[in-house]
């Protein structure tokens, strides 16, 4: 699918805002944070997040990261729940078409920047592509230690015993780790990191990914990153290895038995169908392009 280029008369300058909305001082501050985040993989860098024209919790961190990175020759894809056509994805894509005048696409391959909420695309990413995650809660320890001062100290000491104990207690109680999404990961053997609430199914895609993975949490005012080709290990135990799960079905539209599926209720008698959550991947398969 080709990129869609917006009408320049309706974009950036016409709206009276700076290119990509943010003022240059804010971009500089975010850019400095992004560079330090890449230099210290998995470490949360505090930054002076601004109020954006979208609510906190709706992707303001991702939007600020994208706005600081994006240039006029970029091609942007925005997904929410893996899909290009969910309302929040549509809203964010329209925002950037309007304030940056950039081309947009639904194709994972054609995009240079992909902003995402809750998923990593099924189509493997390649070098130079940038995946921007919207992060609601960057602190992997927050349910175990809500005090920011204390969790900051634990990261400084690389003391992640709390999380190990929690996962172990799951196993004792349930026979398996009860985390199905937002399963914590160790980045480059040093920092415990929240992968943002992606399903555990997507966690292995973080490991040694050739693309640049940037994470923005606007409300919590943190930026972090996983550079390309960086080891990312989902926390587990030798006798209970990490096990990504997907619904044991095939996509009702494209037949994939490998993609992550949405479960759709089709009637009130327990009827269900399963379809790919990644709409671009599903369409490519149906169009016979893979």
């Amino acid at each position: 699918m080709d990129a869609v280029r917006p009408d320049p008369a309706r974009s950036a300058a016409a709206g009276g805002y700076n290119f990509a909305y943010l003022d240059e001082a804010t971009k500089r501050m975010i850019r400095r944070a992004l560079l330090k985040a890449l230099a210290i993989p998995g470490h949360q860098v505090p930054f002076g997040a601004r109020e954006m024209p979208l609510p906190y919790g709706w992707g303001t961190g991702g939007i600020q990261v994208t706005a600081s990175v994006i240039g006029p020759t970029d091609v942007l894809k925005v997904i929410d729940q893996g899909a290009d056509d969910t309302t929040n994805a549509v809203s964010i894509r329209r925002f950037f078409a309007r304030v940056a005048g950039v081309a947009t696409t639904e194709s994972t391959r054609a995009a240079t920047i992909i902003q995402t909420r809750h998923r990593i695309p099924e189509t493997p990413l390649s070098e130079g592509q940038i995946l921007v995650f919207q992060v609601p809660m960057p602190e992997p320890l927050f349910k175990l230690e809500p005090r920011v001062r204390e969790s900051t100290r634990l990261h400084a000491l690389a003391d992640y015993g709390l999380m190990q104990v929690k996962l172990y207690e799951d196993i004792v109680r349930y026979g398996e780790v009860a985390t199905s999404y937002n399963h914590p990961v160790m980045v480059a053997g040093r920092y415990l990191m929240s992968p943002s609430p992606i399903p555990a199914f997507d966690n292995p895609k973080l490991h040694m990914n050739p693309a640049i993975l940037l994470f923005g949490a606007g409300r919590e005012k943190r930026i972090y990153a996983v550079p390309p080709y960086t080891p990312v290990r989902s926390l587990d135990f030798e006798d209970h290895p990490f096990r990504p799960i997907r619904a044991p079905h095939a996509c009702a539209l494209c037949g994939s038995t490998e993609s992550y599926l949405d479960e759709v209720i089709v009637d009130d008698r327990g009827g269900r169908m399963h379809v790919c959550s990644d709409t671009d991947y599903c369409r490519e398969r149906r169009e016979g392009r893979r």
Partner: peptide, 19 residues
Amino acid sequence: DPVLGAQAAFRALLEATAY
């Protein structure tokens, strides 16, 4: 062009830092 000049330079450094 301060806006696009800075963006291009930053992007070069972002990629250099990532790789």
